[in-house]
């Protein structure tokens, strides 16, 4: 069985950790700036200002 020692953990954090955080950052930026998402973001930001203090019952 391969033992997980200190050096392997350091190597893993310094490589995988770097790449998954960069990938995540790119993913978040793409999602936030994706043009077609803008409409639902604007809608959500405006929706909370509406004073209709009742749950929706459809």
């Amino acid at each position: 069985m391969m033992s997980i020692d200190h050096d392997i953990l350091v190597w893993f954090s310094k490589s995988f950790g770097l790449f998954y955080l960069i990938a995540l950052s790119i993913g978040v930026l793409v999602y936030a700036y994706w043009p077609s998402n803008k409409k639902s973001f604007d809608q959500a930001a405006q929706a909370i200002l509406v004073d209709d203090d009742k749950p929706y019952r459809g």
């Binding site: 950052s25 978040v28 999602y31 936030a32 700036y33 973001f41 604007d42 930001a45 909370i48 200002l49």
Partner: peptide, 21 residues
């Protein structure tokens, strides 16, 4: 804050980006 100021968040996008950050 938006509710009390009666203004939507300045940038909804920024709120998402800073959330994940």
């Amino acid at each position: 804050m938006p509710k009390r100021a009666q203004r939507p968040i300045y940038s909804y996008r920024m709120s998402i980006i800073s959330f994940w950050g």
